[in-house]
């Protein structure tokens, strides 16, 4: 029982990442009709916003310590962050320690701007082109973004830890009546799950309860009619692209303490997120979220030793297997709408 609960929790945080990326993908597809293969790269860029802020906060001045030597035997250079000089060692160190949560504020304008630039500068030229062209150009863009990050940050993963206050784990089992140490879960992963629920809830509330959201939903349902009413739907869809980029970026920022970011970070999620979108139903926001969590949890269960003993290698194929079964039973996915990607 404890193992099942643990794997469910595991699936929820993994599913949260899938759901956030798939939500952004669906927003872009539902509004602009573009299959955006650069969306995983936006997740990766978000994670590197956290790395960049950590490095900016750690910019240091150098002093020489004659009593210590470096690896070549020269007097050692001691690096002290400016921020510790300005605010004192304790406050300065605390600000650096909190660089990942602070990066949320740092990443939003960067990601929205990047989204605008991508949409206005490149993707809008492919609106009337076949989906295959859109996939090729956005996949190419993803590779370019990866290589830029690799050039500046290298290929090695960069440790980007959570604030010290959130580094430990919680004994959830004790809270619900299990033995001590039976269900231990990292605090940051729980925060990630809650954060993703807030972002997903925020996006749904924005689309459901604001005039802007209402227009966007109307445009997703019938773009031409909304245009005939004199509403500049293209402008709103461009803004939605920026919001989708920000959602992917925030998912990346908050994921950095879970897995150290590297330039291929986004590709690890991209393919699975597309499976999530298809299983959820092309263009369906609730479907993307539901499928994200469902496939995350199933993926976790498939990694259990008891399951692998019965079905060796199932952990590597489960998501695709479930996708095949769902698409055979429900060809439009779990919550797909008639007419989307069917013309």
């Amino acid at each position: 029982m404890d193992a099942i609960l643990l794997q469910t929790l595991n699936g929820l945080d993994k599913g949260a990442a899938y759901a956030l990326i798939a939500l952004g993908l669906t927003l872009i597809f539902g509004t602009l009709g573009v299959v955006n293969f650069a969306h995983g790269a936006l997740f990766m860029i978000g994670s590197f916003c956290a790395v960049t802020l950590q490095r900016l906060l750690s910019i240091s001045y150098t002093t020489i310590d004659p009593e210590k030597t470096d690896f070549l035997g020269n007097p050692a250079k001691i690096e002290t962050p400016y921020i510790e000089g300005w605010f004192g060692p304790e406050i300065g160190a605390a600000i650096i320690d909190w660089s990942v949560p602070l990066a949320i504020i740092f990443a939003i304008p960067i990601m929205v701007t990047l989204g605008f630039i991508m949409e206005r500068g490149l993707i809008k030229h492919f609106y009337n082109r076949p989906h295959a062209d859109q996939i090729l150009v956005t996949f190419g863009l993803a590779i370019v973004l990866q290589e830029i990050i690799k050039y500046y940050f290298g290929a090695n993963p960069i440790p980007t830890p959570a604030p010290t206050a959130f580094k430990g784990s919680l004994d959830i089992g004790v809270m619900i009546g299990f033995d001590p140490n039976a269900i231990i879960y990292p605090i940051w992963r729980l925060i990630y799950f809650v954060f993703s629920l807030i972002v997903i809830g925020g996006i749904f509330a924005f689309l459901r309860f604001t005039t802007f959201g209402m227009v966007v939903r109307a445009g997703m349902a019938d773009r031409e009619t909304v245009g005939l009413l004199g509403i500049n739907i293209d402008k709103r869809f461009t803004i939605m692209f920026g919001i989708a980029a920000a959602v992917a970026g925030l998912a990346g920022v908050m994921y950095t303490p879970i897995n150290s970011p590297n330039y291929e970070f986004g590709m690890e999620f991209l393919v699975l997120s597309f499976v999530v979108v298809v299983v959820g139903g092309m263009g369906s926001l609730p479907g993307a979220v539901m499928a994200g969590f469902l496939l995350g949890i199933l993926g976790s269960f498939a990694s259990m030793n008891e399951v692998k003993q019965i079905f060796p290698g199932i952990d590597q194929i489960i998501i695709y297997l479930v996708a095949i079964i769902i698409l055979l039973v429900r060809p439009r996915g779990l919550m797909g709408r008639k007419g989307v990607m069917e013309e």
Partner: peptide, 16 residues
């Protein structure tokens, strides 16, 4: 698998 990304689902069975 090589390149599994997040190893949490392989780590949790170790706990008990």
């Amino acid at each position: 698998p090589v390149g599994a990304g997040d190893f949490s689902s392989y780590i949790t069975p170790v706990l008990n």
